[in-house]
Nucleic acid binder design. Structure first.
Lengths: 106, 106
DNA sequence: TCAGAATAGTGACATCTGTCGATATGGAAC
DNA sequence: GTTCCATATCGACAGATGTCACTATTCTGA
């Protein structure tokens, strides 16, 4: 899913149906409080990345639930996952957030 | 629902649970392709507003469905509705979109 | 090879969401 | 007042979503 391929600012022209579906799924990924806090945790972390193991406790959700939300964000192209040893480190994709900002009329 | 009251950029600090719920509902309102096209229609319209009667056809949805989506956008604070005679004119609230952009790291 | 730890996937469940037809409401025009 | 038009609300339905307990997978270290 490539958000940058469809970064026409909302208002420049009516997005076609396929385009608005891609954009909508990105916004839908942001449309859950747990995922917003998740993204916030990633953006504020020193180094910009957080081990999955450190995300369960602050979110007060079960490990499978957090894993599910991470998958939604991954599939929306908003975060990256890097395997390092047994752990997996997640980071926000700033350029994708920027693209969404552009859609909002930047 | 006041988005401006909670426009801390995502990443500046972890939003508390209540705050992220308000923000999430705004993003959730954007998380549907019909509503994205709706907003786009409003933003591109000359004068920045569109009569509700002119929104049904381009969206290819029934009148009650369009009315429902307009209500979602209204409750999310993203559009305004102005009654003029028999018709109701809708317009996007640019400042609220700007607030959301700020949350995305502006 | 085996045991243990970290993470993802599955299946089930309740709740939410998008959609439409039918109906209600509220003005305008006659 | 009655009729007509524009818009909102209601009721119902199928499908999506958030959540968890359970299980599978994959890596590390002994």
């Amino acid at each position: 899913m490539d958000l940058n391929a469809c970064c026409t600012p909302l208002g420049a022209d009516v997005p076609d149906i396929a385009g608005s579906e891609v954009l909508a799924s990105a916004f839908r990924a942001l449309g859950d409080p747990v995922r917003l806090r998740l993204l916030s945790l990633l953006l504020t972390a020193p180094g910009g990345e957080v081990c999955a193991c450190d995300l369960v406790e602050p979110l007060e959700r079960s490990q499978p639930t957090v894993s599910h939300h991470l998958k939604v964000l991954r599939e929306a192209g908003l975060v990256t996952a890097t395997k390092r040893g047994t752990n997996i480190w997640y980071a926000a994709r700033a350029e994708q957030l920027t693209a969404l900002r552009g859609v909002l009329g930047g």
